[in-house]
Write a protein that binds this DNA or RNA. Structure first.
Length: 507
RNA sequence: GGUCCCUUCGUCUAUCGGUUAGGACGCCAGGUUUUCAUCCUGGUAAGGGGGGUUCGAUUCCCCCAGGGACUACCA
């Protein structure tokens, strides 16, 4: 029996979760569930300067809305808690010390200013400053001074960081589930800071320590982390720990132009990049970024579309429920190349799920909009459900419902110009006749009205278009919308006749 | 600049050496519909370039080009 699958999503709370992060979380979730494993959420807030209030809650709420909430996290099954790195602060120093003692790390006293200067000077000469084997003994480190001297400087309160002592002259062949064999020369790597002068670990140290302590079996993360895989593997080795398996996901790219989709893209591209609406409290004007939820996307849409960005099951199926995804997901079928986000196809997915929703739920979602227009009391829910069932095939979002159904609530205020051309000289007389036909119908239901009206037309040899077009124009104000007799039944005999009369006088 | 990753229709993708290179979104046309939408039918459109390996390459290898990521005491 192989060991239990435990995967994590480990965002830092520097703002709202963006769509690429959501995809990473989703793939972790799918992989965990597929393998009867555990999906946990860890908050990586080792950089106190970048902490954004509300971001942590936002992340949790987003995952919950999408239906991919973690099995373990802050306040939930805290088997390996705390799940927030700032609360694990006391843990990391001892591991940094362990690396110092084993000769895998060293103290460095260089100031940020000194390093900046080095970088600038190198740049001016067209060279790149890399803090590693070739210069670490020329810099201000514990490698070149005595242990006593080092201890003294630290005791004096001098600022220092702890850097990893990258091994020399090695070619690393690393295995990535998605990319296969990836090669790195250790001589080209730099000695990353593991422990900062503010007493906090960097991402690299905290991440490895926590993944080990939390018994992470697989690290599934974005491709932007691929360059730090050698460092991470080397760290596991230095600690003598078994490393988890790695899988680096392809990036989600902007739909137009180049580059990866980023938080800064906000609403500029005409679609949300965040699952939930987010108000930037730090901005002067309290900038609001739209969210999928508020825009009327269903969680199923977001899940389905994101799952297919970089993965497919090898068949031609495109509509998947979360359960199906769990069943079929396979990391080995994840793509290597980045994928451009296609807002059009995303909308198509939402239409698919909109049509699938049951009418009662849609009516419930539509009701507040109707109420806002001032029709709350005049309508019972069953009628609203009926309306929704008639129009949903024409919509991508619930927010489009009103424009597609306003004529159910209120008579047209104007008539579509182009359509009015169908209003000919003989039309008023015909409409007058239609009124009297309608007036005599007692069973005022769609099918019955249709039968009677069509009978009347055939008996009098009146062409369909001559009646139906003006009839629709009178009720709807344009040549669009659901089956006409369904509209007639819903608005009722009296209203129908009134609207025809109004059309006769107006047109 | 350096390191690493990637490369099939406009976009998302299938193809595990031999296919008329398939599907979906979009777009166009036709049909259904009194109308719009849905739906159905059809069409549009692709293996970056150059070398190899092979009887045969989209598929395997190399080079180039292009794109991307990373290159902080940020994650």
């Amino acid at each position: 029996m192989s060991k239990q699958v435990r995967v994590r999503f480990a965002p830092s709370p520097t703002g709202p979760l963006h769509i690429g992060g959501v995809r990473t979380a989703l793939f972790n979730y799918l992989f965990a569930k597929k393998n009867n494993g555990v999906f946990f959420l860890r908050i990586e807030d080792t950089d106190q300067n970048r902490f954004v209030p509300g971001a942590e809650e936002y992340i949790m709420e987003s995952l919950e809305w999408l239906g991919i909430a973690p099995d373990e996290t802050i306040g939930k099954n805290e088997k390996f808690g705390p799940y927030k790195q700032s609360e694990r602060k006391h843990l990391y120093k001892q591991y940094a010390d362990e690396l110092i003692n084993s000769g895998n790390a060293y103290y460095a006293f260089d100031t940020a200013e000194a390093l900046d200067l080095h970088r600038k000077q190198h740049e001016e000469q067209g060279k790149t400053f890399i803090y590693n084997w070739h210069n670490r003994e020329k810099l201000d480190t514990s490698l070149v001074i005595s242990a006593e001297e080092t201890a003294k400087r630290i005791a004096n309160g001098e600022d220092y960081v702890i850097r990893f002592k990258t091994p020399v002259d090695e070619t690393l062949h690393l295995q990535d589930i998605i990319r296969g064999d990836v090669k790195f020369e250790t001589n080209l790597l730099d000695d990353k800071v593991l422990f900062k002068s503010d007493g906090m670990p960097t991402y690299h140290l905290a991440n490895i320590v926590d993944d080990h302590l939390m018994e992470t079996s697989h690290v599934i993360r974005g491709e932007e982390w691929l360059p730090s895989m050698p460092l991470h593997i080397l760290l596991y080795r230095a600690f003598g720990w078994e490393a988890p398996e790695f899988a680096h996901l392809p990036l989600i790219l902007k739909p137009v132009g180049n580059g990866k989709l980023s938080k800064r893209d906000g609403d500029k591209l005409g679609f949300p990049v965040f699952p939930l609406e987010w108000t930037d409290a730090s901005s002067i004007d309290k900038t609001v970024s739209s969210g999928y939820r508020e825009k009327g996307f269903f969680p199923e849409t977001v899940i389905n579309f994101l799952a297919l960005l970089g993965w497919n099951d090898g068949t031609e199926q495109e509509l998947f429920s979360l359960e199906e995804l769990v069943q079929k997901f396979d990391l080995n079928r994840v793509h290597k190349a980045g994928a451009k986000f296609d807002p059009e196809k995303n909308k198509w997915f939402n239409h698919q799920y909109l049509v699938k929703q049951n009418d009662a739920d849609l009516a419930k979602a539509f009701a507040p909009i109707v109420a806002e227009k001032g029709f709350s009391t005049t309508l019972e829910m069953t009628k609203l459900e009926k309306i929704v069932s008639l129009i949903k095939e024409r919509a991508h979002f619930v927010s489009e419902f009103w424009d597609l159904s306003d004529f159910f609530f209120v008579a047209p205020k104007s008539y579509d110009e182009k359509a009015s051309k169908n209003w000919k000289e003989e039309t008023p007389a015909l409409m007058q006749e239609l009124i009297s036909v309608l007036g005599e119908i007692t069973d005022f239901t769609s099918l019955n009205i249709e039968t009677i009206v069509k009978d009347w037309m055939t008996k009098n040899e009146i062409g369909m278009g001559k009646v139906m077009q003006p009839f629709r124009l009178s009720l709807v104000g344009a040549l669009k919308g659901p089956h006409l007799f369904d509209i007639v039944e819903l608005i009722g005999k009296e209203e129908t006749i009134q609207r025809i009369e109004k059309a006769i006088t107006t047109l």
